[in-house]
């Protein structure tokens, strides 16, 4: 099949590029086949043998820039999708990583799968094989194949993706794509905000009370570079206690959203990693929407941009003088 050939060609190109750069880097972070047909797994490539395991397809969901900050000082090769490249840009903007220490293999990407969406449609433990084509995802189940429309099981971020092509890269692998998503309409947020405050409050109360405080969300976030000294774990200042109360869990999510204000690129890793399926990305999307509206700012697209909360205008054009309003 043509699609398959294209995929194979791209994989071969990736492997060749990686091999060509191996002498210049300590290692390359990329994807390999995971434990089942729906999972890819991150690997570190140090040799040609490792490179032969590299893949790139719709199962490569992880954002490999997470943890990049901890590797400062090493020379790292990195396989990034369009969305992941925004995390790199953001890290560069904050001078948290050095551009000269990175070799970036940019992968134009037409979408990755959202396992949560497949999970509600089928028992994913039974999947024996998977094949993704332009329009559909064909799952091989013990009782025969099951075909799902591809758009139904793509990650949300892919459906509204405006940066399918990496913003920064040293090696661009394969053909650039035309962005399929239009401006983000924030329809999900609009829908949510139609609820009354009380309903919203109850929604989060329910959601947050399920949080097990595993901090998988934080640990997956490429921009939580300070996780080793995270404010959530600190005794002085003492923001959060060790008690697993609703308040503490909720406040942590507020903390995460506020710390990511003007930085979050909506890679979605936090929500994807949450074992409890708590829709925490919604909070960050809210933040981003407001930032866009107030400061016309979007994180992770311009390494030279000034973060909106680290600057000000004497006369803000979008912020009304409060006290006059009521």
């Amino acid at each position: 099949m043509a699609a398959d050939q294209a995929k194979d060609a791209r994989q071969a190109e990736l492997r060749a590029s990686v091999i060509s750069e191996l002498p210049n880097v300590d290692f390359v972070l990329g994807y390999a086949k995971g434990f089942d047909p729906l999972h890819a797994t991150p690997i570190t490539v140090r040799s040609e043998k490792d490179a032969a395991r590299l893949i790139f397809d719709a199962t490569c969901v992880q954002n490999l820039t997470t943890g990049l900050y901890g590797l400062k000082g090493k020379r790292i090769g990195l396989v990034v999708k369009g969305c992941d490249s925004r995390s790199v840009v953001q890290l560069l903007q904050e001078k948290l990583v050095e551009r000269s220490e990175l070799v970036i293999f940019g992968m134009p990407c037409d979408g990755v799968l959202d396992l949560a969406k497949i999970r509600v449609r089928t028992d994913i433990t039974q999947v024996r094989g998977a094949e993704v084509t332009g329009e559909e995802v064909r799952l091989l189940l013990p009782d025969g194949p099951k075909v799902l429309p591809r758009r139904d099981v793509l990650a949300d971020k892919c459906l509204r993706c405006r940066y399918p092509n990496p913003i920064v890269s040293d090696h661009l692998i394969g053909q650039e794509l035309t962005p399929q998503g239009a401006e983000d309409t924030y329809a999900d947020l609009d829908g949510f905000e139609k609820l009354s405050p009380q309903e919203r409050f109850d929604f989060w109360k329910r959601q947050m009370s399920r949080c097990i405080r595993c901090y998988a969300c934080r640990n997956a976030c490429p921009l939580c570079v300070c996780k080793h000294v995270c404010l959530a774990d600190s005794r002085d200042p003492h923001w959060l206690s060790a008690e697993a109360t609703l308040q503490e869990k909720w406040l942590f999510q507020v903390m995460h959203a506020l710390h990511l204000a003007g930085r979050c690129t909506e890679c979605g890793e936090c929500q994807r990693s949450c074992p409890m399926g708590i829709p925490i990305l919604l909070l960050k999307r809210k933040m981003n929407r407001e930032l866009k509206e107030l400061f016309n700012y979007e994180a992770g697209v311009d390494p030279e941009a000034v973060p909106p909360l680290h600057t000000f205008l004497m006369e803000e054009d979008k912020i009304k003088d409060r006290g006059q309003l009521w």
């Binding site: 300070c226 000294v229 995270c230 404010l231 600190s234 002085d236 200042p237 003492h238 923001w239 710390h259």
Partner: peptide, 13 residues
């Protein structure tokens, strides 16, 4: 972000 810099006498705590 980590509140590692604290104003003495008006610390977070």
């Amino acid at each position: 972000p980590v509140r590692a810099i604290q104003l003495q006498h008006f610390t977070d705590s």
